[in-house]
Design a protein around this nucleic acid. Sequence first.
DNA 1: GATGAATGAGTTTTCATTCAT
DNA 2: GATGAATGAAAACTCATTCAT
Lengths: 208, 208, 208, 208
Amino acid sequence: MQEVKLSRREREKLRHRRQMLAAALDLFSEKGFHNVSMHEIAKRAEFAIGTLYKFFKNKEDLYKALVFEQADSFHEALTKAIEEADDEIEKLRNYVKAKGTVFMDNVSTIRLYFAETRGASFNIRAGLDNEIRERYGRFLHTTLASVFERGIQRKRFKKIAEPYQLAIALDSLCNAFLLLWLEAPERHPYPEDPDVILNILFKGLTEP
Amino acid sequence: MQEVKLSRREREKLRHRRQMLAAALDLFSEKGFHNVSMHEIAKRAEFAIGTLYKFFKNKEDLYKALVFEQADSFHEALTKAIEEADDEIEKLRNYVKAKGTVFMDNVSTIRLYFAETRGASFNIRAGLDNEIRERYGRFLHTTLASVFERGIQRKRFKKIAEPYQLAIALDSLCNAFLLLWLEAPERHPYPEDPDVILNILFKGLTEP
Amino acid sequence: MQEVKLSRREREKLRHRRQMLAAALDLFSEKGFHNVSMHEIAKRAEFAIGTLYKFFKNKEDLYKALVFEQADSFHEALTKAIEEADDEIEKLRNYVKAKGTVFMDNVSTIRLYFAETRGASFNIRAGLDNEIRERYGRFLHTTLASVFERGIQRKRFKKIAEPYQLAIALDSLCNAFLLLWLEAPERHPYPEDPDVILNILFKGLTEP
Amino acid sequence: MQEVKLSRREREKLRHRRQMLAAALDLFSEKGFHNVSMHEIAKRAEFAIGTLYKFFKNKEDLYKALVFEQADSFHEALTKAIEEADDEIEKLRNYVKAKGTVFMDNVSTIRLYFAETRGASFNIRAGLDNEIRERYGRFLHTTLASVFERGIQRKRFKKIAEPYQLAIALDSLCNAFLLLWLEAPERHPYPEDPDVILNILFKGLTEP
DNA sequence: GATGAATGAGTTTTCATTCAT
DNA sequence: GATGAATGAAAACTCATTCAT
């Protein structure tokens, strides 16, 4: 964002930080937060343990940095996807596609959310650190829900449920498809055509 | 299941086992698997640590016993709900209701799936120990999906997606609502009327 | 004190505790609190590190147990010495003798107070954990000072200073002699005859 | 001492050195040698860690520089106090006063000797790094003890103990009063009139 | 001379697990 | 079967010190 000139020292520092985060992401997503030691991360990043602690004051801190940075970039991508179209239906299509892209391009991050779980979680929104969860909740509540809201106002959509509920529904639908893909990518490819997913919402199952 | 006569000894043993599992469930759901020590569980259950190890050969084992027993009972309840009705729509209504009941009556268990998570999980099906997950997958694939399949055959449902996809969709919809409830029970009550959820599938958002 | 019957288990436990404290005392007095690791203590006591932590919840705790137990026994010995005589002068003689005995019999403990010091300390009363110091302060203030007070009332002593000041003075006099002894036991033996020390107080330096 | 002309460079260097020592003194006296890190000292002195190491080759070295410089100045002040008077009694009075001044004006330094102590120390002379202690021992043995010796020779003092013992006695008496002051300055002010302390030596407690 | 990033040995502490009684 | 003392590997974290710039 800021177009600041950084000294070589500072640029190097930033690079090192990124290397550490990358190593941590790898390991966390592979084995889960509790099953990775700081020594392991340091080793994988090819730094001494003390250096790791110079960058992140403790393990928690490192984890948070990781999650927040990833969450920010996801958030941005999804918001942009919605904003890039005018038409409500097009916005939703963009959203479904962007969600797939972001998810599939960042499997490590995604796995990071799972790996630790001993047992399941129920939905993308559960289990996240509260702040992240809330942030995502607000995103659904505002950005995504308002697409449905405007669509209903403009009579493009029938009001079969509250806008927020529709947002939640669409999101969890995408997640469901993505998890199928995660388990068996070839057997359950994430649909190229967003309408495969959207039609579940758009078309009525039961009647005209 | 088996209506075997148990000796007093055996009945006591079973009671002790249950006490230990109950203590473990409490603690795990409160703090997550990794943040609970075997000593803690033993203490809460009012047994010596050695006794705990007489019943469960290690922590993993204890955890699995817990999860499998809970999963079995959930599974049974959901299957029964579907089997109890004849009509497909009624089956789905029963499913939505049963899912709510089971979830809300077993918050500890539910939380057990989350508590550990450092980071999110995306869906009830992810993050579960593989076996549990697979089992639940098979359940969706067979029991629930076949409701949709038969409905489509009998022209009660339009084929807006594959039966399995519809099963996944309905399930993730329920989960989404349940997670809202978990976060803020009064603000987001799980709908008494299952049609609030089902209509999102049943009615078309866009057209006749 | 308590004449409780202890089970063999309990007796063993107590013995182990004493062994650990003894090892710790040795090491602390040799090298100072900060220069001794818990592993070292465990090793010297021939227990595993975990066992050490079962007995003392952390290093601080271990140190305190050590200091308090030693302080208690010192305190008791000094009090008893004073109470054992009737005559004020005899009480003081007993005190000077007991102080020497206790000090010389517990050089480790004494050194424990020094070893850590990087730099000096000024007096037996300084540097002690506050509670210990206060306790010793009260002892001087009450038990020892009251010997002087009664002596003055009964005209055995001239009131050349406040009783408390005299108590402090006598105590620091003993300490001074004991430290000389500690440095070079043969060159500066602690006087057998307590009057060598007491006379510095008793007899006037300057005039009749 | 040496009245050498120093270049600006050298003067600056000396000033930096003093700043570092001052920061270290502050911190050590506050928290004790072992609880202060070199980074902390560098930060407080507003220098980089590397610069600190340019001045002092290690932590020990820094500590010693600190202690020796302080000790020298104390030593000098006390010696001067004694030399400034002719009369033996006056010399002792000066000593008692100077000791109080030096102590009370340099509480940080004093505390430096205590702060680290886990446990007590018995006397100003114990616990000091050996060299310092010896130096102070020599001072008591020569400078202060010789005042008593001459006093005895010149029949101003009765020989109630060896000169060295008297020196030790007076010193430890002063220390005792100073420690009372350190604990509770208002409750136990260090006597303005040195005779309050000296009389404990001068006047006989028991008889003419 | 000044800087501060990097190092890694060493410290405290936890906890799953074993086993003699 | 029940007990709980003992174990020790392994984790998180600190800090004195070095050295390239």
